[in-house]
Design a protein around this nucleic acid. Structure first.
Lengths: 289, 289
DNA sequence: CGCAAAATGAAATTTTTTTTCCATATTGGC
DNA sequence: GCCAATATGGAAAAAAAATTTCATTTTGCG
């Protein structure tokens, strides 16, 4: 499996000059693989064609192909040593699935926080806290539910907060009421939906709204139009990506924005509580204008 | 000192397109720095000259110079991976709000996992994976959105999954179709809503459905009627409770249940992807009977 | 609203890197 | 020691990448 082991195993079959190249490679593995062909050639005192022949013997189609593999290995090694400090076996073997997933999710959360700039986060919260701006929320198929989570909380904190309906025919009514001061909070994760981009484009270009985008590290196409982009780490090594990092950021926003005028928020929550027995339905703000 | 911190600190002074490039860089730091200029340009959706201008603002004499610095950082970090993940102090004091909240949320997740019995979790997943049973989901005001999150995922995994509408008048149609074999997944957290209890009571007593309850440590009144109760830790010392523990369990359920018949799930997801361009709307299963 | 200044990216240019070709060198068998 | 097979690297060609130029777009301001 490992590229390094692969080289070591085959080093006996190589020709003299190829072995020189392989040795240089191993001497500073894996970083020698990041050098250019000419640099590695100089370092190993083997000509570039020799290195190319070596690389092809190792099963790569070219130097670029080889370099991509090296980068992949560096990436892997860079991330993996962390899932070591496990809390496994606290109550027996059968829990390891849950605790493994938990540790991986924790890692994703930590990475999300560590790649989020505090300054940018503050700027975003300030935008959202600004009562003069209307806030519009939307999201992709799955993240829509988390957008809705944020929506329902923001509703308790301030007015002029709107959830864009999922049904596309309803969009114009919202889009046409957006202005330059307004904010669109969009959540868009892998398998980006084309109509989300269309929506964002119109909101940003035609209406001049500011877009705050929550996305993954592959960056949704909406990032073209967004004023702020917050990349969230979603990988936990399972077939489904995790959203705990996103939820963490959402809850951080809720806390930060409500701090801003806690008294008003408390009053709203109390008023809400009074109503909660009579009806589960939200009292909708009218759209402005 | 650190290149990453350097970028973060200056991100405010950058122009819009430069910020896009910087965000892409940070989203997959430090590996995005190993890409070629053209690749990074594509990924960040900023033109190459823009990236070059960014790189020069950061104090490098060219893209190559910058890449050498990135490689240097990777090399350094490679041998001490832990330093990188010491989230606090990594980018200064102003981030402490986010990282404090993150650590508190992590604690809540860990506690949730450590108080969840693996056996019970498995039993719940088995119930949900059983294709013969219909699954009905519901939740309180805020947790309803997370119930919806689970709903949309379960929909991709199996059939006969239904989301109870929030509007009370619609409930009878669902309640009357529930049978003894069926499962209600209820999420109910502090400030329990009385009508949720009414719903659960009817589902359990009159219809004989099995209730799986996600709640907080104060235990929703629904626990009287539930076959399984999973208490989630929600306290993070802020005015708002956290839901990361709940989301973790939900995602664990999704992973576990989809494992059960991954081939079928994959096919469903692919079929879904085919449709995703034509309409954002779900194709609703008919209610049974 | 219009204008100047700043920002941006398309495309041309330059530089670097990879790949190919082939002449020369080396090796091992006889 | 000679020959054929194999290995090697110099250098040209091809490809790719980085950089520069400059026209167009966007932004901020009066």
């Amino acid at each position: 499996m490992g590229l390094e082991k692969n080289i070591r195993d085959r080093i006996g079959d190589l020709t003299a000059a190829e072995r020189k190249a392989a040795t240089a490679m191993l001497a500073d593995y894996p970083f020698a693989g990041l050098l250019t062909l000419a640099e590695l050639s100089k370092k190993s005192r083997a000509s570039s064609p020799t290195i190319l022949r070596l690389v092809s013997k190792l099963g790569f189609s070219g130097y670029g192909d080889f370099q991509r593999a090296v980068i992949g290995e560096i990436k892997e090694a860079y991330h993996s040593p962390l899932i070591l400090h496990d809390v496994k076996d606290q109550h027996g073997i059968d829990d390891s699935f849950l605790s493994d997933l938990s540790e991986a999710s924790i890692e994703a959360m930590r990475e999300t926080v560590s790649t989020t700039s505090g300054k940018q986060f503050d700027a975003i919260c300030e935008l959202i806290a600004d009562r003069k701006r209307s806030i519009f929320l939307t999201g992709g198929r799955m993240s829509y539910t988390l957008a809705m989570f944020l929506f329902r909380h923001l509703r308790q904190i301030r007015s002029k907060v709107f959830l864009i309906p999922e049904y596309e025919e309803d969009w114009p009514g919202y889009l046409l009421r957006m202005g330059k001061k307004d904010v669109v909070i969009a959540m868009d994760f892998r398998r980006y939906q084309p109509n989300m981009e269309k929506f964002a484009k119109f909101a940003a270009k035609d209406r001049g709204a500011k877009i705050v985008l929550f996305t993954d590290k592959w960056l949704s196409p909406i990032s073209k139009y967004s004023a702020h982009t917050l990349p969230v780490h979603v990988d936990v090594g399972t077939p489904w990506d995790t959203n705990v990092g996103l939820l963490l950021l959402i809850e951080a926003v809720i806390n930060r924005v409500s701090e801003d005028d806690w008294d008003a928020t408390r009053k709203r929550i109390e008023a809400w509580d009074q109503l909660r027995n009579t009806s589960g339905l939200a009292i909708d703000d009218e759209l402005p204008k």
